[in-house]
């Protein structure tokens, strides 16, 4: 409705203003539809996702910001809380812990934080979750690093 549109427009202006400050997040609005956004986020340092650039797709509902935006990874990622095939994200703030005070920008930040701190106890990717839960940190990290190289890094040569 009108309120969500106005809010998204304000957020768009905010994003343009903060573009320089936060280089880890690049939020782009669809040219024709303000309810469709994409974001490019950098994998956090000291994680297997370091060096990768991951693309997120936002679908903003009409009731935004009372309803959370639907976010999923477009880039393949090996992470316990991200569905390996669909890119669906299991994150409480995108579901029941959503607050209208959050913005698309802050959702991106929360997703970066989730990448750095996976929650293996509520897995969408069972393989990844099982590796972490069984304590095989090395196995998890090597798998995640491999998929980061395969999917999230620009092809060389």
């Amino acid at each position: 409705m009108q309120a969500s549109r106005a809010r998204l427009f304000k957020e768009y202006k905010e994003v343009q203003r903060e573009k320089v400050v936060d280089s880890d997040i690049q939020l782009v609005c669809d040219d024709s539809n303000i309810f469709k956004w994409t974001a490019l986020i950098k994998g956090p340092t000291e994680t297997p996702y370091e060096g990768g650039v991951f693309q997120l797709a936002f679908a903003v509902p009409e009731q935004y910001p009372l309803q959370p935006p639907q976010v999923r990874f477009l880039t393949k990622i090996f992470h316990p809380n991200v569905h390996f095939k669909t890119g669906e994200i299991c994150l409480d703030i995108l579901k029941n812990a959503w607050s209208p005070a959050w913005t698309l920008q802050s959702v991106c930040r929360a997703i970066i934080a989730l990448m750095a701190h996976p929650e293996p106890d509520s897995p969408l990717n069972c393989d990844s979750g099982n590796l972490l839960r069984s304590g095989d940190i090395r196995g998890y990290e090597s798998m995640a690093r491999m998929y980061t190289r395969l999917a999230a890094m620009p092809k060389k040569g």
């Binding site: 009731q63 009372l66 607050s99 209208p100």
Partner: peptide, 23 residues
């Protein structure tokens, strides 16, 4: 202490009725 406008407060009361600041 979370502040918001009356309009949004009303909309939130009609929805889940939780404070955006502390949930």
């Amino acid at each position: 202490g979370f502040r918001l406008c009356l309009f949004c407060h009303k909309r939130i009361l009609e929805a889940d009725g939780r404070c955006p600041g502390c949930r």
